[in-house]
Design a protein around this nucleic acid. Sequence first.
DNA 1: TATTGTTATACTCTATAACTATA
DNA 2: TATAGTTATAGAGTATAACAATA
Lengths: 164, 164
Amino acid sequence: MPPSTPAAPAPSAEKSATPETSEERFQQSPLAREVAFLTARARGRGNALANQLLADLDLKVRHFSVLAMACSGTKPSQRELGEFLDLDPSQVVALVDVLEGRGAIRREPDPRDRRSKILVATEAGRELYAQAAERTRQAEEQTLRALSPAERDQLRELLAKIVF
Amino acid sequence: MPPSTPAAPAPSAEKSATPETSEERFQQSPLAREVAFLTARARGRGNALANQLLADLDLKVRHFSVLAMACSGTKPSQRELGEFLDLDPSQVVALVDVLEGRGAIRREPDPRDRRSKILVATEAGRELYAQAAERTRQAEEQTLRALSPAERDQLRELLAKIVF
DNA sequence: TATTGTTATACTCTATAACTATA
DNA sequence: TATAGTTATAGAGTATAACAATA
């Protein structure tokens, strides 16, 4: 009988042999190793937190994304924006309507194709974006707080590789 | 006039100065560097592909996740499962109803708490899971095909760190 | 003839509240 | 009193089809 094995978890205990939380238990499941599951959970949590922080600006993540692209100087048309953000053309219409109604963005005619409309931010839109971007920055900080700066960059690079 | 500069993109061209696709253009935007955006896009694409590959089994990713946990041997209650999968209790009921109706899983009484029900897979359920897991494996392979095996492990580790 | 934005519409997913049976 | 599961219901998100203007 070895005298120097102090803190072993006593595997022979009869009743409370499973004091671990279900979260810990489930981390052993195969599902918990699937990238699809992990990204779904990451995006779910991140989205919820970001929506929460954006709430006092009366914005949701989806509106923020449209506003961000309108502020980016890349002059997206509605169609292009929909493809980039994985949004249906009809959804883009609805989101743009909201932001244009708030005076944050404008639909400008495309001189090269009069069918399409280019989205640009107004001065008020750029101000709103500045406030919103600060909040999403906080959300990202909190979401990634378990990672070192180097790991955060790694994650960004790996994700960019698979989606672009 | 240097004779040995053959394939320069001729930056002084007047008209077609933007031959790049909008996707390339938008990758320069600040939004494209936000982890929230990248994970949302990753999960959107991954989810769509997985749903597509699971379609001939009459399953969607959400059903697959429940089935996977029922097959995992971790004996989740409906409540615990909902927390792990970010699903509302009422959604769990609906998903479990479908899978139980197909004979893939069973609700078993929890001897320690007669209010809660533990989800376990039937033999048919384990067979269905085997087929479905092969398809989600294919989906992951395709989603991550731009990454080396080492990079895939890295990504898994980083994601696990932020969601667990 | 094909494409952009738009509208109307329906469908899926998600969230809320109330109920029951147990604890 | 609080919690697990259930039900009903409403809301948000998403997808589909048809149309007008333009290419």
